Simulated scan of single mutants.
Amino acid sequence: MTATTTNTADPRQRPASSASKLTSGQLPRFIEPAILVGTAVVVALVLFAVTQTLNIGVWLFFTAILYLIAIAVASAIVESRRKATDRVIRGLVTSAFVLAVIPLVSTLFTVVAQGISVVNWDFITKVGGSQFNPDTLEVVYVPGALQAVVGTLIITGLATLISVPIGILTAIYLTEYAQPTNPLRRAITFFVDVMTGIPSIVAGLFAFSLFSLIFGPGSFSGISAAVALSVLMIPIVVRSTEEMLRLVPMELREASYALGVPRSTTIIKIVLRTAVSGIVTGVVLAIARIVGETAPIFIAASFTDALNTNPTSGPMQTLAVMAYTNYSFPTTDISASQSQAWGAAFLLVVLVVIFNLIARIVATAFAPKTR
């Protein structure tokens, strides 16, 4: 008998040629920043040599274009076409992000740099504006924003009291009670979508016209401005609350119904408690959205340098309107008026940041997992 032997190759051992087909080269990690720095230097030198100046916008634009071309060519040569496409798309996404962030950072930096030198304790706690000095018989401009801070808090608070109950109850009806084919549900959804895109100045004209018809011409008041802001705030509250209620699992409702719990109790005890974190976050973000409105408040509540704590009578001042009026209609002391405008803008930014921080804290504190 002759023994036959079969040579079985180890499947883990592949020929070098087949292994090279399955792998490709890899650019080093530092290649992207190196190419970016190199293209930035080259573009800067070329622009300076051609124009004798360096325009930041033009420099950034041509740097981004040259970087994308360079990284695509390098990746296509060393790696593969798919990897080159991935790097180009990632570069485009990063460029779009930087393009969106630059105006935001620039605006925030300008407001902070101009306003932080104006804002102090006296600026926040004193009423500012043009005041008559009986000693010198002159009209002097006194810095202060107390009337604007108080007006902002009053008008925003009233708008919140009007909008939140209406918005939450409307979202509960759309989510828990109305059927998808209900004509009323479709009509409400349509009007909510329309109100979401309504210009803010239209809301101000609506509130001013409504109060003028009821109380007579020239009925400027804080409650009128609050009604105008509520027109802008209600659709935001409705949409955010509706989405949060839809995220509550249907199994929780069915389990409650199986135990014989009425629908109203189920909504209050189960659905709203589960979605309270997202609802509160949406409400706070809606407040942050309307607190900086200028046109509707300017039309419905006008503006004044006096401190008015009565929202039912007389003009009221807000931080947004104060910044607009001091910059657009300065007094004889133009620099003082512009300083007041920057100070009001800085306080408004601080107020919006505080509202967003409150939203984050509330979302964490009322989250179901946290509780």
Rank of each mutant, 00 (worst) to 15 (best):
G197Y: 06
P199E: 06
P199Y: 10
S200A: 15
S200T: 15
I201T: 08
I201N: 06
I201S: 09
V202Q: 10
V202L: 14
V202D: 07
A203K: 03
G204Y: 03
G204N: 12
L205E: 12
F206W: 04
F206T: 13
F206Q: 03
F206V: 14
A207H: 09
A207V: 10
F208M: 13
F208R: 10
S209C: 02
S209G: 12
L210C: 03
L210G: 00
L210D: 09
F211R: 02
F211Q: 04
L213G: 13
L213F: 14
I214R: 15
I214N: 06
I214P: 12
I214V: 15
F215C: 03
F215M: 05
F215I: 02
G216W: 07
P217L: 14
P217M: 11
P217Y: 13
G218W: 13
S219E: 11
S219W: 07
S219L: 02
F220I: 01
F220P: 01
F220G: 05
S221M: 02
S221E: 05
S221G: 06
S221Y: 08
G222I: 08
G222R: 04
G222E: 07
G222K: 09
I223P: 00
I223E: 00
S224G: 15
S224A: 15
S224E: 10
A225V: 02
A225P: 07
A225L: 09
A225S: 12
A226V: 02
A226Y: 01
V227G: 00
V227Y: 11
V227L: 09
V227A: 08
A228Y: 09
A228L: 11
A228S: 12
L229D: 05
L229P: 10
L229R: 09
L229A: 08
S230P: 01
S230R: 04
L232K: 10
M233W: 03
M233V: 05
I234W: 01
P235A: 12
P235T: 09
I236G: 03
I236E: 12
V237I: 15
V237R: 00
V238Q: 01
V238N: 02
V238R: 01
R239G: 02
R239S: 06
S240W: 00
S240P: 00
S240A: 12
T241M: 07
T241N: 04
T241H: 02
T241R: 01
E242Y: 00
E242K: 07
E243F: 02
E243Y: 02
E243T: 10
E243M: 07
M244V: 13
M244E: 14
R246Y: 05
R246V: 05
L247R: 10
L247Q: 15
L247M: 15
V248H: 01
M250G: 12
E251V: 10
L252Y: 14
L252Q: 11
R253G: 12
R253M: 06
E254V: 04
E254F: 00
E254W: 00
A255F: 12
A255R: 10
S256R: 06
S256W: 05
S256C: 05
Y257A: 14
A258R: 04
A258T: 10
L259C: 07
L259M: 15
G260F: 07
R263Y: 00
R263V: 14
R263I: 11
S264I: 08
S264F: 14
S264P: 01
T265H: 15
T266C: 09
T266Q: 07
T266A: 08
T266R: 02
T266K: 04
T266W: 02
I267A: 03
I267Y: 04
I268G: 05
I268N: 06
I268R: 09
K269H: 13
K269Y: 11
I270E: 11
I270C: 08
